[in-house]
Simulated scan of single mutants.
Amino acid sequence: MSAIRMFIFGAGYSGKAVGRAKPDASIRIAGTTRSPEKFEALRQAGIEPFVFDGSLTDELAGELAATTHLLISIAPDEAGDPVLNAAREKILHGMPKLQWIGYLSTVGVYGDHGGAWVNETAECRPVSRRSVMRLKAEQEWLALGAETGLPVAVMRLAGIYGPGRNAFMNLTNGTAKRLIKPDQVFNRIHGEDIAGAVWALAQQDKGGIFNVTDDEPAPPQDVVTYAARLMGVTPPPEIPFETAQLSPMARSFYGENKRISNAAIKAAGYRFRYPDYRAAFDAMWEAGGWNEGEARSPMKRG
Rank of each mutant, 00 (worst) to 15 (best):
Y161L: 13
F50M: 09
S2K: 08
E123T: 15
E63W: 09
W141K: 13
G207V: 08
T243E: 09
E294M: 06
A21L: 05
N187M: 09
G102H: 07
L135H: 13
F9P: 13
P76M: 11
F168E: 06
E59Y: 01
A279Y: 07
A267D: 00
D215N: 10
G302Q: 04
A263I: 00
M284E: 12
G149V: 12
T57P: 00
V18F: 12
G174A: 11
S252L: 01
R34S: 15
M6A: 15
P298Q: 14
L230F: 08
N119K: 01
K136T: 10
A200Y: 05
A122V: 13
A227D: 01
V109S: 14
Y274F: 15
L84Q: 11
L98V: 09
R20F: 01
I265D: 02
W199M: 10
Y103I: 04
I101G: 05
A146R: 15
I265L: 04
G62Q: 13
K266D: 04
S73I: 07
D81K: 03
T57A: 11
N119C: 03
G255W: 00
A137C: 15
R28L: 10
R259C: 06
M249P: 04
A280R: 06
G302T: 05
G207K: 00
R278T: 11
V127D: 06
S105T: 05
A158E: 14
A227F: 08
R301W: 05
S26W: 02
W285P: 10
G208F: 12
K136M: 12
G111M: 09
G62I: 13
N211K: 12
W285G: 06
D214F: 01
M249K: 03
V198S: 08
A143R: 14
G208S: 13
S261G: 15
R165I: 07
M299I: 03
Q204D: 01
L157E: 02
T33F: 07
F241T: 09
A283R: 09
N257P: 03
Y161F: 15
Q139H: 15
I189G: 13
G145D: 08
V107L: 11
P237H: 09
E242Y: 00
N291R: 01
P151R: 10
N173T: 08
